[in-house]
C-alpha cells in the first residue's frame, strides 16, 4: 500500500502496471498465451504474404508498373523501417513460440505407440491420425525461414554470388520513365530496375525451382496454419469451421498460384 501510494499517490497507476505485467507474463509464459502469439504473428505474416504477392503480380503490368511501385515503397523512408522491424518482430516471435511449443510437445510424448493406428471402425482412421501438414509444421516453417533468408540475400541485399545468373543486381537501374535501362545508375539517386532483376533472377532454373518448392511449402504450412489460427484465437465453432477450413485451402492455393506464376512465366518466356 505504501509502495503503491509512493508511486502514484493511490491513483491506480500501480495497479494498472501490475495488471499489464501479469498480462504479458500470461501471454509469454503459458501454453495458451503462446498459442495466441503464434496465431497473431501467423495472421500478420499471412497479411504480409498476401500484400507481397499482390505487389509482385504488378510484374505482369510491365516494367513501369512494378518499378514505380518499388520506388514508392523505397520512398516511404522511416515507415519502411517500421514495417521491416514489425515483420522481423513477428517472424522472431512466431519462430520462438514455434520452437518452444514444439519442444514441449516432444517432451510431453516421449514414448510412441508400437502399433499403427487401426481403429475398429477403419474409416475413422483419418480422423484419429493427425494430418501430414499438421505433423510437419515445424519443418515446413523452418524451411520457409531458411528460404526467406536466401530470398533476402538474393533480391534485397543483392549478393551477386548467390543469384546464379552471373549478374550484379546492384547495377540494375532505370531512368525516370521506370522503363529504360540506365547504365551506371547511382544508389539512392536512381530507381532500381526491379523488373530486370526478376527476369534475370528467375531465368536461372535452379533458382526458380527452389522458389517454387519454398512457396509450395509455405502454402502447405498455411493450409493447416490458417485453419488452426481461427481455433487458437477462439473464434472457431462447428458451424463456421468448414468455411474456415475451405478458406485455408483456397487462400493457400491462390497464394501458391499467384507466386509461382512469376518464375513460371519468366522461364516460359512470357515475361521478358
Amino acid at each position: 500500500m505504501e509502495l503503491r501510494n509512493s508511486i502514484d499517490g493511490g491513483r491506480g497507476l500501480y495497479d494498472t502496471f501490475v495488471q499489464l505485467m501479469d498480462f504479458i507474463t500470461g501471454i509469454f509464459k503459458t501454453s495458451l498465451g503462446r498459442k495466441y502469439l503464434m496465431a497473431i504473428t501467423g495472421a500478420g505474416l499471412f497479411g504480409f504474404v498476401v500484400m507481397h504477392m499482390l505487389g509482385n503480380l504488378l510484374v505482369f503490368a510491365g516494367p513501369a508498373a512494378i518499378n514505380e511501385y518499388a520506388a514508392k515503397l523505397q520512398g516511404l523512408g522511416p515507415l519502411l523501417w517500421v514495417a521491416r522491424i514489425g515483420l522481423l518482430g513477428m517472424v522472431g516471435l512466431h519462430i520462438w513460440s514455434a520452437i518452444k511449443l514444439t519442444s514441449e510437445n516432444r517432451e510431453a510424448r516421449t514414448v510412441e505407440y508400437d502399433a499403427a493406428v487401426e481403429p475398429v471402425d477403419a474409416h475413422r482412421r483419418g480422423d484419429i491420425v493427425a494430418k501430414f501438414a499438421a505433423r510437419t509444421m515445424i519443418f515446413s516453417g523452418l524451411i520457409i525461414a531458411a528460404f526467406a533468408f536466401y530470398h533476402l540475400a538474393h533480391y534485397t541485399w543483392k549478393v551477386p554470388q548467390i543469384n546464379g545468373a552471373g549478374a550484379d543486381f546492384e547495377l540494375f537501374y532505370v531512368a525516370a520513365d521506370f522503363t529504360t535501362t540506365l547504365e551506371g545508375g547511382e544508389e539512392g539517386k536512381d530507381h532500381a530496375d526491379i523488373f530486370k532483376m526478376i527476369v534475370t533472377g528467375f531465368k536461372v532454373p535452379a533458382v526458380s525451382v527452389f522458389y517454387v518448392v519454398a512457396v509450395g511449402l509455405l502454402c502447405f504450412h498455411l493450409s493447416h496454419g490458417l485453419s488452426a489460427m481461427f481455433q487458437s484465437l477462439g473464434v472457431k465453432n462447428k458451424n463456421i469451421a468448414p468455411w474456415m477450413d475451405r478458406f485455408a485451402v483456397c487462400a493457400s492455393a491462390l497464394i501458391f498460384l499467384g507466386y509461382i506464376s512469376i518464375p513460371v512465366c519468366v522461364l516460359a518466356g512470357f515475361i521478358k
Partner: peptide
C-alpha cells in the same frame, strides 16, 4: 502436458 496443434485426434 503438450500444446494443442489442432489435429482433432482428441475429439475423434
Amino acid at each position: 502436458f503438450g500444446n494443442c496443434t489442432v489435429t482433432g485426434s482428441c475429439e475423434a
